[in-house]
């Protein structure tokens, strides 16, 4: 099939960008979306032009590196699918496709479709872990965990950190990302000792990184390639509320 692509081109973070229209004439329905971009890039290189910069790595939907707005949808039209797993049979001959980077103040554009998502790492640094020392763990079966709880922790842990939730949100909020980690650890006995400190600290960092607040649009859940539920944001809010009210040891002692 033949497609008309409108791709965001921006040579550097502080340079004004714009759409460039590029014809993709040799597209097979079996190609992945990124393979289609590979072919486009090979064409640009042959013409002596600079190829389109885009992030990608595993190309099997698990590393979370790829991400782009495709016709206004994070990762494109397929539900529960990252851009690398989107295949061209989703499109028809003659389609026009608009391809843009994630848009959010906390995710500045670096070049073309590549954005800086390091704010996510800093949210995890703020408490997205269990403080366990290597080698001092008890036997793995010492604490049984009901299957339902373990399963729910897993559902929340499935987040790949791609940033689609932020791109989808009208407030550019990263609450779904933050809530997924908070919920995973809140569902497990191992996460209990630091549960309330964790949520306070992670939400603090979330806010200071420039992400917006959650106002319950739910666009994040629809955009998430891993089906992370907005219910976890409710869970986060419950924990946050409780944490702000509960009697906790002195900050200095924590």
């Amino acid at each position: 099939m033949k497609l008309k692509l409108h791709i965001w081109r921006q040579s550097a973070p502080d340079v004004r960008g714009g759409f460039e229209t590029i014809a993709a004439d040799n597209v097979s329905a079996h190609m992945s979306f990124l393979e289609m971009l590979d072919v486009v890039n090979e064409g640009l290189i042959a013409e002596g032009k600079e190829p389109v910069a885009f992030d990608h790595d595993c190309r099997e939907g698990i590393c979370g590196t790829c991400g782009m707005m495709i016709n206004g949808n994070p990762h494109g039209p397929w539900e529960g699918t990252s851009a690398c797993q989107l295949h061209m049979r989703a499109f028809q001959d003659g389609d026009e496709i608009w391809i843009e980077p994630w848009r959010a103040r906390a995710f500045p554009v670096l070049k073309d479709l590549v954005v800086d998502r390091s704010a996510f790492d800093r949210i995890i640094q703020a408490g997205g872990y269990v403080s366990i020392r290597t080698g001092s763990a008890p036997d793995a079966n010492a604490v049984p965990i009901g299957k339902e709880w373990a399963d729910e922790a897993f559902d929340a842990a499935a987040c790949i950190g791609c940033g689609a939730c932020v791109a989808a949100c009208p407030n550019a909020s990263a609450m779904l990302f933050t809530a997924a980690k908070v919920t995973q650890l809140a569902r497990l006995p191992q996460g209990q000792p630091e549960r309330y400190e964790r949520v306070l600290s992670m939400v603090d960092t979330h806010d200071s990184e420039g992400f917006g607040n959650c106002t319950n649009h739910g666009a994040c859940q629809n955009a998430c390639p891993k089906g992370i539920s907005v219910d976890y944001i409710a869970q986060l809010n419950r924990d946050l509320f409780k944490a702000t009210l509960m009697d906790r040891p002195d900050e200095a002692a924590v």
Partner: peptide, 12 residues
Amino acid sequence: DQAVAQGVPFAR
């Protein structure tokens, strides 16, 4: 042991 203590959600 280490992974479970970290909160890795293994199948149960």
